[in-house]
Design a protein around this nucleic acid. Structure first.
Ligand SMILES: [Mn+2]
Ligand SMILES: [Mn+2]
Ligand SMILES: [Mn+2]
Ligand SMILES: [Mn+2]
Lengths: 230, 230
DNA sequence: TTAAAAATTTAGCCGTGACTAAATTTAGTT
DNA sequence: AACTAAATTTAGTCACGGCTAAATTTTTAA
């Protein structure tokens, strides 16, 4: 019923809304690689369809209906990604591009079968949460690796999936999901981040480090009380 | 590069060419559920693109390039069908509709991985041959079950995949691929065909029987020479 | 052979989702 | 407060792939 174009706009708005409450024409246009005029057009269309609210010159916000539809597409996307890695052993840097197309064409029935096959998973291959069928998403409380201070340890929980080259690099560095990483030091502004992964010291480009999301390990307890783990 | 619409027309022309050398505007339009005017338009476009030759009022024929492209889409379709049955146990009556959409969006790389996963199969779940990557298709020498004379036995090798209800019925009747079937008798014109499958007598609608393609079993050898099997 | 019927093409239109260029509004200076 | 720069919207266009209605060609039947 809704076209791939509409689905892509909804998805993009949803994602951009994680940072800004209202999504700006130029942000949306940039995110989709489309002219500002095209974005304006579609924003109006979404508003007409009650999928978004729009204030001219002020951007759009998804309505509950729009958000639900965005989450449905995102669910398709992430299920397909995970399915491709699981069923065909496709590397994590390649699944995004395929899912970007397949997400628009699978039926609800196929979605359900894929989800069942995967055991109703909650995370995609890059650590992104998979929305439930009724449109609920876990909100991950993670920090970028870049935000850790020297000495802090953390576990990799999510990585950006948009740049295949980055993902290949992360694989080579051992920075895959659930990997333990310790920040050693930060070189001068804009310089690389030095970290230790699997007992090897690595230098991470700031751009790359920003795409790695981690759960910090609580600071090593001081002396007594060593067994307060759950 | 080529749109889903173009791919669907190429596929339809290819399929219709199995019967008529030149594909007629109305046949094409009917096969795609589109107006004759729309078919004419696209036929011109395909001719312009050198994917088909066209003589006004006389129909179209695929060029070698057009045929190659048609076979590529058909390969995608049949690989996807088989993959869905194998990887997700989706019943054979449901895979066609899904494949009809997915065929247009998978990359060459994904195609290759699916083919490898399936062990480079040569038949889809309905017995249709899967074209090779370089565009070769096996031409099956089968006859419709309807054409057998009473007493003849045969093996089911291919069934039409377009009608899910028919496929479900065939499953219930045991008329799946490689099933042995014997024609008992034909009721008066238009009447059902009586057959035996798995030691049960069944009545098949003419319409249904026409969609079942079989390899006839050579007539029972007379007396001597009973072991000439390979 | 000719008239009627059927098939095909042409003409003109529409919605979708892009685009560029121009107009307008908003945001940031001095 | 007034300009200027940046962002956004409007206006107008395009390709695509549909459609209907009318014109034309081919086929069939009288
Ligand atoms: Mn869904
Ligand atoms: Mn992705
Ligand atoms: Mn291919
Ligand atoms: Mn099929």
């Amino acid at each position: 019923m809704t076209s791939p174009a509409v689905q892509n706009y909804l998805k993009a708005i949803y994602t951009l809304q994680e940072n800004q409450a209202s999504v700006t024409t130029s942000a949306l246009a940039a995110s989709l690689g489309v002219s500002a005029a095209s974005a304006t057009n579609m924003m109006k269309k979404l508003a007409r369809a009650k999928l978004a609210r729009r204030a001219p010159y002020r951007g759009v916000q998804l309505t509950p209906r729009g958000e639900k539809m965005a989450l449905e597409v995102i669910r398709h996307h992430r299920l397909v990604e995970l399915f491709l890695t699981r069923a065909l052993a496709i590397p994590w840097e390649s699944v995004h591009a395929e899912a970007e197309k397949i997400e628009h064409v699978i039926s609800e029935d196929l979605e359900d079968r894929i989800a069942a096959f995967l055991g109703n998973p909650t995370r995609d291959p890059h650590g992104d949460p998979i929305p439930t069928k009724d449109g609920r998403v876990e909100r991950l409380a993670l920090v970028s690796l870049l935000e850790l201070s020297p000495g802090q340890s953390a576990t990799v929980r999510r990585v950006s999936d948009h740049n295949p080259a980055h993902l290949r690099l992360l694989t080579r560095l051992g920075l895959t999901l659930d990997a333990r990483v310790t920040v050693l030091r930060r070189e001068p502004t804009g310089g690389p981040l030095r970290v230790r992964v699997a007992n090897t010291e690595r230098a991470l480009d700031e751009k790359l480090a920003r795409e790695i999301w981690v759960a910090p390990t609580p600071p090593r307890p001081t002396r007594r009380a060593n067994k307060n783990k759950v």
